[in-house]
Design a protein around this nucleic acid. Structure first.
Length: 359
RNA sequence: GCUGCGGUAGUGUAGAGGUCAGCAUAGGGGACUGUGGCUCCCCUGGCCCGGGUCCGAAUCCCGGCCGCGGCC
């Protein structure tokens, strides 16, 4: 992949650059989610301030609302939301399969009910790609079939085969030459299925490879074992994306296995629920012990929240449901995470990356 | 002074002889991982006080105390 350049490898951990139509992303990197074209509670300037290089939005959700017409009138999603840097779009595979939408899953696609008008519609690989082409994101994701983690072997096998078939259809439908296209492997925590998924997808040929259907309830040990055992099948030149991972420990350990790219709602959602990342483990700011704590969330963090506000103040904002509390913790968590990613990139380049160091 | 109504977790309330006394909120703790943004789970905590009737009383009766209303 000529868009991806590796600069350094420290054991299995990699540092590189992913070039998109709108910038160079230093890897490994983390994307906050802007599902509905906005990182919840934060302005673009604030998101930039956290050190974020790239966001990920959601094709399916944006297709439902505001719809493609509005976004086309703005000449694309980046322009619509005024995000100046790189942007991924997720296919919508993860969302459309939720019981809220999904009526019937079949080889042709996902029959779903549009909650805004009640109409039944078929969401297909071709439609997902068409939407993502119109949105004009820098990286589009293939539509995949994501089985729940407790699925039977036949169901996992079906999902692997269907995801391969859908990836083929996505590739065929993909017309936007400025947009990279990443595929997604499946297979639960069954090594043979993952390997089959990976080899078939490699044959079709994509700009990047995502691990899908992980971190959805299986044990962390199984997740890491699965990634570790199958990531070796990938060519070095291919960027590897672990979808849906956003907690410190999982990020660090996945980077140690050779993952380059992540996205997750975890840092911002957990922030809205009062939990702040820190170098000494996360803290629940609403807990009574912080009522009179004058210290910042993390004394080593340079974010404006830590430089300005005490834990006691943030505790107060949560207890009184002032929404700045959620905003400040969202900002801090993203800043903390992006700062950690930066340190990790530097350490990989310096050859001093050790997973134990950060968690 | 007389009379009526009412007193149930910190707060607001349900409960009309047998309830593990229900609910909401506050308080304490936990969860959240390709987000339909204020979610979910767990825990603590209560029948105003005395008597009486009854196998059994938050519930019925009597007396007190307190609150609100009405009348002298």
């Amino acid at each position: 992949m000529k868009q991806f350049k590796l600069h350094a490898v420290s054991k299995k951990a990699r540092a590189g650059t992913l070039k998109t139509a709108h910038g160079k992303i230093q890897t490994p990197f983390f994307m906050p989610v802007a599902t509905k074209a906005s990182v919840k509670l934060l302005s673009n300037e604030e998101v930039e301030g956290t050190g974020t290089q790239c966001l990920i939005s959601n094709a399916f959700i944006l297709y439902l609302k505001p719809g493609l017409e509005t976004i086309k009138k703005h000449k694309g999603l980046r322009n619509f939301m005024q995000w100046k840097h790189s942007l991924f779009t997720d296919s919508g595979g993860f969302q459309v399969l939720s019981p809220d939408f999904c009526l019937k899953l079949s080889n042709s696609g996902v029959l779903f009910r549009n909650p805004f008008d009640g109409k039944k519609m078929l969401f297909t690989p071709e439609l997902s790609i068409k939407i993502q082409n119109s949105l004009g994101s820098d990286v589009a994701m293939c539509l995949d079939d994501v089985p729940i983690h407790s699925s039977s072997l036949p169901r996992l096998t079906q999902a692997v085969n269907r995801t391969i078939d859908w990836a083929q259809r996505c590739k065929k439908a993909h017309k936007n030459k400025k947009q990279l296209l990443f595929c997604i492997n499946q297979g639960g925590t069954v090594r043979e299925l993952r390997e089959k998924s990976i080899s078939s997808l490699l044959e079709i040929g994509f700009d990047g490879m995502a691990f899908g259907g992980l971190c959805i309830g299986e044990t962390k040990e199984k997740m890491f074992r699965t990634i570790g055992a199958t990531i070796t099948e990938l060519p070095e030149s291919m960027p590897r994306y672990l979808m849906g991972v956003g907690s410190i420990r999982e990020l660090v350990e996945s980077i140690a296995l050779g993952i380059d790219c992540f996205d997750s709602c975890f840092p911002t959602r957990t922030a809205r629920h009062g939990k702040a990342f820190s170098s000494k483990g996360s803290l629940n700011i609403a807990a009574a012990k912080f009522k009179n704590d004058l210290k910042p969330l993390d004394k080593e963090c340079n974010c404006f929240v830590c430089k300005t506000h005490s834990r006691a103040y943030l505790h107060h904002l949560f207890k009184t449901k002032e929404e700045n509390g959620m905003k400040y913790l969202s900002y801090h968590n993203l800043f903390f995470l992006q700062n950690l990613m930066k340190k990790i990139r530097e350490d990989i380049k310096a050859g001093s990356f050790k997973p134990e160091k950060y968690a």
